[in-house]
């Protein structure tokens, strides 16, 4: 999800492909043919993705909406499932847990990732910059669940390399470390550790894309690195920051792996209904109520879509520059 989607998508256009005035007519028609060919090739490239997105994204979402609006026998009940899950004593607790987590995590992500990317970008020494990027990226190379497994050890004072630190904070057992009040921070740290590195690389790529002329001009005008960051780099990174926020928001609202694994590892001291997604899972597989489960998922979808719309609008994500 990271480097492939990086700033590289804006391929430098060839001079011949531009529609500048003064180009002979034959050239324009050749140009048109090429464009058409590019479009059909584009469709071929997109097709497999579209098929899988429909099969595993759009259709399940539609099925979830259908389930959320019906009862176990397929009868139409537009509100029953929603009012049932909202009345569940675990619902608002789970929503609060996810909200706390999101505030901490998104905040850290937006501030630290951009800051670190700008710092790494400003490093003149090639090997130091390269090493720093590799260092940031490495944790993200571990697949989701396995990196959480690693944290199970880090959080246990008996096994952890950070054991002395945890004990110094007064937490001498695993159960003490995973007290309910610590959990949003713990999950945010785990998620940041596993996910931030990839985004730093993306931001780094985006920074590379800022034309050197602008940077040069700013420097000649006497701007210091801080002013360059605030007045040039940040505004030009706006889209990428919004992009990161949208994708991270989608991942964050679906908090599941971290609490689930921690719940199993702690023998349920971390509850198995900590997050909204876990609650949806409990509805489906503990209560055998797929309709209630779908209702929670649909609510999550709506909230995530609304919040994403805000980020998209504020970040100008869908603006096209070269119209």
């Amino acid at each position: 999800m990271t480097t492939a989607q990086s700033a590289g998508s804006e391929t430098p256009s060839r001079p011949a492909a531009t529609d500048d005035n003064g180009i002979p007519k034959e050239a324009v028609s050749v140009n048109r043919d090429r464009k058409r060919r590019q479009r059909s090739i584009g469709a071929v490239f997109v097709a497999p993705y579209a098929v899988f997105m429909l099969a595993f994204g759009v259709l399940p979402a539609l099925y979830a909406i259908y389930l959320a609006l019906t009862d176990a026998n397929g009868g139409f009940t537009p509100t029953a499932n929603f009012s049932k899950v909202i009345d569940d004593f675990r619902f608002f607790a789970a929503a609060r847990h996810v909200a706390f987590f999101l505030v901490i995590w998104l905040g850290a992500l937006l501030v630290l990732v951009v800051f670190l990317a700008i710092v790494v970008h400003a490093i003149r020494s090639r090997w130091l910059s390269g090493t720093a990027r590799l260092f940031f990226y490495l944790p993200g190379a571990l697949a989701g669940a396995s990196s959480v497994m690693l944290w199970l050890f880090v959080l246990d004072p008996v096994a952890s390399p950070a054991g002395p630190l945890l004990r110094a904070l007064g937490w001498d057992t695993f159960t003490n470390v995973i007290q309910p009040s610590h959990l949003p921070l713990i999950f945010a740290i785990i998620a940041f550790w596993t996910g931030a590195g990839g985004w730093i690389i993306v931001m780094y790529g985006a920074l590379n894309n800022i034309s050197t002329e602008i940077m040069e001009a700013a420097r000649i005008d006497g701007a210091n690195p801080f002013q360059v960051a605030i007045h040039i780099q940040l505004p030009l990174l706006r889209k990428w920051i919004a992009y990161m926020a949208v994708l991270s928001l989608a991942t964050g609202t679906q908090l599941f792996i971290e609490p689930s694994l921690l719940s199993q590892a702690s023998n349920a001291v971390v509850p198995n209904d900590y997050s909204l997604n876990q609650l949806a899972y409990q509805y489906a597989f503990d209560l055998n109520d797929f309709n209630g489960s779908a209702a929670i998922s649909v609510m999550l979808l709506v909230v995530a879509l609304l919040l994403s719309a805000v980020f998209v609008a504020k970040g100008g994500l869908f603006d096209t520059e070269d119209v």
């Binding site: 159960t175 003490n176 007290q179 702690s266 349920a268 001291v269 509850p271 198995n272």
Partner: peptide, 16 residues
């Protein structure tokens, strides 16, 4: 599960 309820409500209290 009574065990799960005890684990999430009482165990953290005992622990602290």
């Amino acid at each position: 599960s009574q065990e799960a309820i005890w684990a999430k409500t009482i165990t953290p209290l005992v622990s602290s």
